[in-house]
Simulated scan of single mutants.
Amino acid sequence: MLKAKNLTQIAQKVLQQEAAALQRVSAGIDSSFEACVEAILSLSGRVVVTGIGKSAIVANKIVATLNSTGTPALFMHAADAIHGDLGMVQKDDLVICISKSGNTPEIKVLVPLLKRTGALLTALVSNTDSYLARQADFILNGTIDQEACPNNLAPTTSTTVHMALGDALAVCLVEARGFTSQDFARLHPGGSLGKQLYLKVGDIYKDNELPVVFEDDNLKDTILEISGKRLGAAAVLSSNQELIGIITDGDLRRMLQRFDDLRGLTAADVMSPRPKTVCPTDYAAKALQLMQENNISQLVVVSEDERQEVLGFVHIHNLIKEGII
């Protein structure tokens, strides 16, 4: 059995070889790549990505990336295409055919059928002199020197390069379309990622009670308000109902260190001034960022007008419940 040191060296060699291949492919990006991007941007149909074996797996990933970034895409297995699935390709589509050699029997059967549909054909290949490349309208050049496999057989470097070219294509389309984080959220409504992009403070703070005291309220009433509303804090208002501070459980503990005699203390004596606030239209992700930056667990929610009326609280537990964290 190989020693751990040897295994580490092998792993490093694989990664270095694949990284070097990506550098060479990057330097080879040309006008055909640009023309493919422009064709997709003006496409009235969809992008259909096809391949066989490991290329089919790469094709599935590229399809998923395109769909999630605003480019409608379909996966078609190259073997299934000649048994009926070719019907999903329409004349207004663009087909990306992935093949390392570009000369496999399946590709040679499939390409003439694809050309017959009238769809544009893009070859994502590691052999630009192949049958597939010669028949294609556009070429995405994924040429490599050799696979990372010691026998130069198992698709390793080639699949890494092909997948990276798919990413490059998708990102070019994102940039060209001006695809925004709001667009991304629209396509990713589920899970924590989607919620970070669309969930707003106004969607969650209303489930909490609103603990509020006035600056002249005595200590007993202040503690009862904090305890009764179960958020570990209370907003402190002036006599004209302006937000002037916040009292948290931590402020109460610090109060015990600062004062020997608690009699006569008011909310104004205990509060922390200038509390951190958010508005209902702020994203929940912003609320989380403010909490993390200031090492606090709650924020006061205020209106967006000049009055900054206290509307409620958002607590770290709300964000945990929603899966933002």
Rank of each mutant, 00 (worst) to 15 (best):
G28L: 08
T128W: 07
K276A: 03
R307Q: 12
E18A: 10
D167G: 06
R230P: 00
N141M: 03
S158L: 02
V49H: 01
A59M: 01
A168V: 08
A64D: 02
T8M: 09
D221N: 10
E38L: 15
D249V: 05
V213P: 05
S297E: 04
T157F: 12
S31A: 15
V95C: 06
F259V: 08
C36K: 04
R46V: 14
I57W: 05
T157G: 06
K195I: 09
D282L: 00
G53A: 08
I223F: 15
A164G: 04
L110M: 14
H188Y: 13
I244Y: 06
V314L: 05
K91H: 14
L120H: 03
R24M: 11
Q146V: 02
Q196A: 09
L173Y: 09
K115S: 14
K61D: 05
Q12S: 14
A233F: 04
L153N: 05
V14Y: 09
A170K: 15
R274H: 14
V47T: 08
M255Q: 12
A123W: 02
P155E: 03
F184E: 14
D93R: 10
A168Y: 14
D145N: 09
L199Q: 01
D207W: 14
E242R: 12
C279W: 00
V58H: 00
L265N: 10
D269I: 13
E18C: 08
A233I: 02
S297I: 02
G102K: 06
Y283E: 01
C36E: 07
C172Q: 15
V111W: 02
N141R: 04
N218S: 11
I139K: 00
G102M: 09
N67P: 02
F214V: 01
L237A: 04
D217M: 15
A35W: 11
E209M: 07
D221H: 08
L110E: 10
N218A: 08
E215V: 07
D85H: 02
F184G: 05
L2R: 13
Q146R: 10
C279N: 02
L120W: 01
A176I: 12
T69N: 09
A136C: 13
I320T: 05
G51A: 02
T50A: 07
L66N: 06
L256N: 03
R230N: 10
P280S: 07
V58C: 01
I316L: 10
T180E: 12
E34Q: 12
L319W: 05
L66S: 06
L199A: 00
T69A: 14
N6A: 11
